[in-house]
Design a protein around this nucleic acid. Structure first.
Lengths: 143, 143
DNA sequence: GTGAATGCAAAACCTTTGCAACTGG
DNA sequence: CCAGTTGCAAAGGTTTTGCATTCAC
């Protein structure tokens, strides 16, 4: 998985911050569960299997630290619980309203997500967030 | 404001539902405060000036009903409190990280927001949500 | 050794819900 | 009239926080 960054790279990005056992476990879990786009409590559930003493608050802290460090991204839709994603390429998310799965949607080659928009002139865009809701191919077949 | 729908049109969309005083107040407030993209509690604060007896729960109920009726839209970013928008045209939102203002960003003529993406083939898209965060022109000037 | 991070429990925050009283068509 | 709506207060789920203890560097 070329887009996953290494532990060393994470430690680098953490700057002066420590790579604790908990942070490593949380990072591993998010990378392992990537395609599911786990919520904080899914990460907690899985992390506890590996490290039974880890607490939910620590999972939240680690997820925030890792997000700030750029090692993972936080994915939100409406006001549902946040989900986390190890895919660091620019991409969008597709939320299936039938099965609740979340899929990565990649940018086409040479495409620019900001291109179709009349962006406010003189502004600086720091982050772009594209999400869509619908019925995924699997669920459409089942209809 | 051509894009605002009339009370009659709302009543129409409400189907068998009633156009109560509270719903009318909430709709008026959202349309009046449109550019600010008010949160539920901002709507509540303003609505109470007009109708002191209105309750927060009713404001939430009305906002949901009006959203479902297609009279307004709900705008979310990360896990911040939802904001509401009377602009019914397809558009995106720009959130300024400095001043917390929210701006509408319109689609360029003939542009299609879904075009740059490799959409999952065989899926049906029901809704598309585009948001960006950055520094607005005003705040950049102030820097 | 020492500041940063953890774990726990409690709090915060936005939003939804249950229910008796009320009201619009 | 009477199903649908309101107002109130209480509960809900997710996320954050305070603080004593522990740990990574």
């Amino acid at each position: 998985m070329a887009e996953q960054i290494t532990d060393a790279a994470v430690a680098e990005k953490l700057g002066g911050l420590r790579m604790t056992k908990q942070r490593k476990v949380v990072l591993d879990v998010v990378q392992e569960m990537g395609i599911e786009h786990p919520t904080a409590s899914s990460v907690y559930a899985r992390a506890k299997e590996v490290m039974p003493t880890i607490s939910l608050a620590t999972v939240y802290n680690c997820l925030e630290t890792l997000t700030d460090a750029g090692a993972i991204t936080q994915v939100n839709f409406h006001r549902e619980a946040s989900r986390f994603c190890p895919n660091l390429q620019p991409h969008a998310h597709f939320f299936c309203s039938k099965c609740d799965a979340v899929f990565d949607v990649s940018l086409q080659n040479r495409a620019d997500a900001s291109e179709p928009w009349d962006l406010p002139s003189g502004s600086r865009i720091e982050e772009m967030n594209v999400a869509m809701r619908g019925i995924c191919p699997e669920c459409r077949k089942a209809e």
